[in-house]
Design a protein around this nucleic acid. Structure first.
Length: 561
RNA sequence: CGGGAUGUAGCUCAGCUUGGUAGAGCACCGCGUUUGGGACGCGGGGGUCGUCGGUUCGAAUCCGGCCAUCCCGACCA
């Protein structure tokens, strides 16, 4: 169905009133998707073509590293989820069937695939194994947002590797790194992979694949040769002028000054000359005073990693042994102190542990003992390898994760090695979201006229715009052009509607097929179709000759971006 | 889960302050004229005004509950 007169392509002049993200507005306006409910979307025919093209790229590359495609159900018994501990996850949809058996809607498929492997894999000869599928994921998101970017139901390609040991896992992981690189290169997206937080799930290695775009939910720190999620990024702090330490700390009156800003202004000291106290409590250590430079922020993910255990913010009760909130400091306090790596030598202003007072000229080491750790959030302008970093929003389009044996232990996935000894299977999981790839492509390449798809993702390669109404020479010539290009292997959309040229051009630019061929009186007289490359709206000199059009397009195609 | 906003035709919105039985533009249907950047004329179809309740002779409009959607934050195995 590639004639516009027969295609359900409901384009809109206006974006939906509640749309904020560019991809949300454009994908709805271009007739690719329609909303059903919060975080629930229908892919209309043109949008689904894009989705399927992305799937196909992924399929080819995962097949190329030995992945075996299969299909697992979304609706699953709760049992395996109880065994892995994920039944408690809030985002998991839970329901019961007519026999009152507990069921879940899968948010990923580790439980299911591992259960199969536990039953089907017996010997080291059965490993390694890469299994994957494209299947719907269900997540009871607290807040779906940005159109297709964060939804409650979406298709994911998830693959799972099963290996004999950790070395084998590394090989499977590396294969996916290569496959993912090819997938994103082929997609035409701007992308990078970043070090990622391994999260509450444990594991021992993870990468996220990020596509920079305005509607992105993540912040990514970038420098030449460096890319990391701000959640885990490390960088050299920009230096700040700090006073020399005083001979001994001097107590200063700072009435009501409980914030960095207030103290800084009151004492005429730059924020970076203060030490911000961030008191936390852990099971293992009790109260810990985390200190970062006044112009820095504590990164709670890095802090948890540095502590090696979970923590909570200290409350007034916890602070009773030291100072009141707002005037907490390390000097004379009987607590362990974690000093951020970004704090250089110097004389700092710190809380005095008494109301309305601070200490100045405090020298870490001399005036209080500490342990060092990297626990701050990096900032634009910090450096990595001497290069300043920038921080960009990006959307996570894929992730790969070394799981280890967490699931195989919980679900009994073992095999017998050469010596007949039972061993746990080593696992990793690898996700990719075609919908997010599509949305990121829209965001990255749209202009004021609409979408400009990368060639590999476009719903059609070529849109032929026929000017002139039914029975006209132009339409007849368009039909011939359309047939010839289709025979030559191109996906072609023919705008054969009885509409004015303005409406047709506007819709074509909104939909964003890479190449537009226009057949009107003018060009017909010259024996050619006008050609415009969507990206940049570049006209092609001389257009495409109608005599031998397929060859002409074939020649032109490499220069289409 | 906290904070904010919005719900009127397929879409974008007006009407609500000051209660009197619903409108515009676009889209859609018919006829005609148009056809190189979102055409024009004439005629037409389409809305329990999110929902439930209250006040009132009378509610899209005032009041209350609920629901839905969006945005910010928290959250995002």
């Amino acid at each position: 169905m590639t004639r516009l007169t027969h295609l359900l392509l409901p384009t809109e002049r206006e974006p939906p009133a509640d749309a904020e993200a560019l991809s949300h507005k454009l994908m709805v306006r271009a007739g690719l998707v329609r909303q059903v409910g919060a975080g629930l979307w229908t892919w209309l025919p043109a949008g689904w073509r894009v989705h399927r093209r992305i799937e196909q790229i992924i399929r080819e590359e995962i097949d190329a590293i030995g992945g075996q495609e299969m299909l697992m159900p979304v609706l699953q018994p709760a049992d395996a989820w109880r065994r892995t501990g994920r039944y408690e996850v809030d985002e998991l949809f839970k329901l019961s069937d007519r026999k009152h058996a507990d069921m879940v809607l899968a948010m990923t498929h580790e439980e299911c695939v591992t259960t199969h492997v536990a039953q089907l894999v017996r010997s080291y000869r059965d490993l390694p194994l890469i299994l994957y599928h494209f299947q719907v994921k269900e997540r009871d998101e607290p807040r779906p947002r940005a159109g297709i970017m964060r939804t409650r139901e979406f298709v994911m390609k998830d693959s799972y590797s099963f290996d004999r040991d950790r070395d084998g896992l590394d090989v499977s992981y590396e294969r996916h790194v290569i496959a993912y690189g090819k997938i994103f290169e082929r997609s035409g997206l701007e992308w990078y992979s970043v070090e990622a937080d391994v999260g509450m799930m444990g594991g021992f290695g993870a990468h996220e694949y990020m596509a920079p775009c305005g509607a992105g939910e993540n912040d990514v720190a970038l420098a030449p040769g460096y890319a990391a999620n701000v959640e885990v990024a490390s960088a050299q702090a920009q230096p700040v002028d700090v006073a020399e330490p005083l001979v001994s700390p001097e107590r200063v009156h700072t009435p009501g000054a409980t914030t960095i800003d207030q103290v800084s202004r009151l004492l005429g000291v730059p924020a970076g000359g203060l030490l911000k106290a961030f008191p936390v409590v852990t099971d293992g250590r009790g109260l810990v005073l985390v200190l970062v430079r006044g112009d820095h922020h504590v990164n709670e993910i890095k802090l948890a990693l540095a502590l090696g255990e979970a923590f909570r913010h200290a409350d007034d009760e916890d602070l009773r042994s030291i100072g009141p909130a707002g005037f907490v400091g390390p000097v004379g306090a009987d607590v362990s102190v974690l000093l951020d790596d970004g704090v250089a030598d110097g004389g700092y202003v710190v809380g005095a542990n008494e109301p309305d007072h601070h200490l100045r000229g405090v020298q870490p080491g001399r005036d209080f003992a500490f342990q060092r750790a990297d626990v701050r959030t990096v900032q634009a302008g910090d450096t990595v390898g001497g290069h300043p970093i920038t921080i960009e929003p990006a959307i996570e389009v894929g992730n790969i994760f070394k799981l280890g044996t967490r699931y195989s232990e919980a679900l009994g996935a073992t095999y017998l090695d050469e010596s007949g000894t039972e061993q746990l299977v080593w696992m990793a999981s690898y996700g990719l979201g075609p919908a997010r790839i599509a949305a990121a492509a829209v965001e990255q390449f749209a202009d004021e006229h609409g979408i400009a798809w990368p060639k590999a993702l476009a719903p059609w390669d070529v849109e032929v715009v026929a000017l002139g109404k039914a029975g006209s020479d132009e339409l007849a010539a368009s039909e011939r052009l359309y047939d010839e290009l289709r025979d030559a292997g191109y996906d072609v959309l023919l705008d054969d509607r009885d509409a004015g040229p303005g409406a047709k051009f506007a819709d074509a630019e909104l939909l964003g097929c890479p190449l537009r061929l226009t057949v009107g009186k003018r060009s017909l007289a010259a024996g050619a179709a006008e050609a415009q490359i969507r990206r940049g709206r570049q006209d092609v000199d001389g257009g495409v000759s109608l005599d031998g059009a397929a060859d002409a397009v074939r020649q032109l195609w490499p220069s289409v971006r």
